[in-house]
C-alpha cells in the first residue's frame, strides 16, 4: 500500500472537481513536487465551465434574458443539486425547469423563467426526435364518414404541446434574438419538426385542448368535445385539424386503416 499522502482516491478527486471549498485531493502532484493548486484548477474550471456552457446552449433564451452572470450562478447551483447522470450533453437540463420553479430569485423576479425553460427543453427534444414520415393530407378523406368520430392519430415523435400562463413563445423568440420581451399573456404552443427545423405555433384555447387530447391518443370525437368545452366561441375542428397537419404533427391514422396509410 502506498503511504497515505501518495494514495489517490477517486472519490476525493471527483468531489473536489465540483466543490470549490474542497481541499486539494491527496496524491495529486507536479514534477518535483510542490503546489499543484492552479493545475488542479484547470480540471475544476473545465468541468464547471463546460457544463454551465452546455446548459446555456440548451436554454439560450433563458440565458439571454437572465443575463450571463446570473444565469451562470443559477446553472452552477442547479448542477450541484442535480449532477448530470448522462454522458450525452443533449440530455442535460431535464430538471432545470423544475429547479427554476423552486429557485427563489427566479420565482420572485422572473416567475415566467421556468415555463420558458420548459419550452426550450421541448425545442431540443423536438430537434433530436426520431424521424417519421408525416401523414398525407389526403389520408383523411379516405376515412369512411361513419368511422370518423372513432378515428385516432399517431403523433410524430417531435410533436409536443407546452402550455404556460406566460407568453413563452414571445419570450423564446425575443431571447434567442437578443431582444427584451414582455412575459404578459398566457400562451399554449405546438412544437413540431415538419422536416429538419423545429417550428413553433401558437394555439388558441380550443385548438390547444383539441390538440392536446388528439396527440394524447384520444378519438377525434373526444378531442372535439375537449375543444368545444375549452372555447368561448364555436370550435372549428377543421381548422384545428388542418393546423396539426400543416405543422407536421401527425404521423398516421390509428388503428391501422389500410387505405391512405403509406408507412
Amino acid at each position: 500500500m502506498p503511504p497515505a499522502e501518495k494514495a489517490w482516491n477517486r472519490n476525493a478527486f471527483a468531489g473536489a472537481l465540483t466543490d470549490p471549498l474542497a481541499p486539494m485531493p491527496a496524491g495529486v502532484t507536479r514534477r518535483g513536487g510542490g503546489g499543484a493548486v492552479r493545475r488542479f484548477a484547470v480540471y475544476r474550471n473545465n468541468v464547471v465551465h463546460s457544463l454551465v456552457t452546455a446548459i446555456a446552449d440548451i436554454f439560450p433564451a433563458v440565458a439571454a434574458l437572465t443575463g450571463k452572470e446570473r444565469f451562470a450562478h443559477a446553472a452552477r447551483l442547479y448542477l450541484e443539486e442535480c449532477p448530470p447522470r448522462s454522458p450525452i450533453l443533449a440530455e442535460l437540463g431535464r430538471d432545470f425547469p423544475a429547479f427554476l420553479d423552486r429557485f427563489p430569485p427566479a420565482r420572485q423576479q422572473m416567475p415566467w423563467l421556468a415555463h420558458l425553460a420548459r419550452l426550450e427543453r421541448a425545442w431540443l427534444d423536438a430537434w433530436h426526435a426520431a424521424d417519421a414520415a408525416p401523414m398525407e393530407a389526403g389520408a383523411l378523406s379516405a376515412i369512411p364518414p361513419e368511422s370518423l368520430a372513432e378515428t385516432r392519430f399517431r403523433p410524430r415523435p417531435a410533436a409536443r404541446i407546452i402550455a404556460a400562463p406566460f407568453a413563452i413563445a414571445d419570450l423564446m423568440e425575443a431571447g434567442r434574438a437578443g431582444l427584451p420581451a414582455s412575459p404578459g399573456g398566457a400562451q399554449t404552443v405546438l412544437v413540431t419538426r415538419p422536416h429538419l427545423s423545429v417550428e413553433i405555433r401558437l394555439l388558441d384555447e380550443s385548438a390547444a385542448a383539441f390538440a392536446a387530447r388528439l396527440l394524447d391518443g384520444a378519438t377525434l370525437e373526444e378531442a372535439h368535445a375537449a375543444g368545444e368545452a375549452a372555447g368561448h366561441e364555436a370550435f372549428d375542428i377543421g381548422a384545428s385539424l388542418g393546423l396539426l397537419l400543416a405543422a407536421g404533427a401527425l404521423a398516421a391514422i390509428e388503428p391501422a386503416c389500410a387505405t391512405g396509410e403509406d408507412n
Binding site: R10, T18, P83, P84, P87
Partner: peptide
C-alpha cells in the same frame, strides 16, 4: 481518461495514475 464516476458525468477528460 475518465469522465464519469459513480454515475455522475463531469464532461471533461480527467487524468488517472
Amino acid at each position: 481518461a475518465w469522465s464519469t464516476h459513480d454515475g455522475v458525468f463531469y464532461n471533461d477528460l480527467l487524468p488517472l495514475p
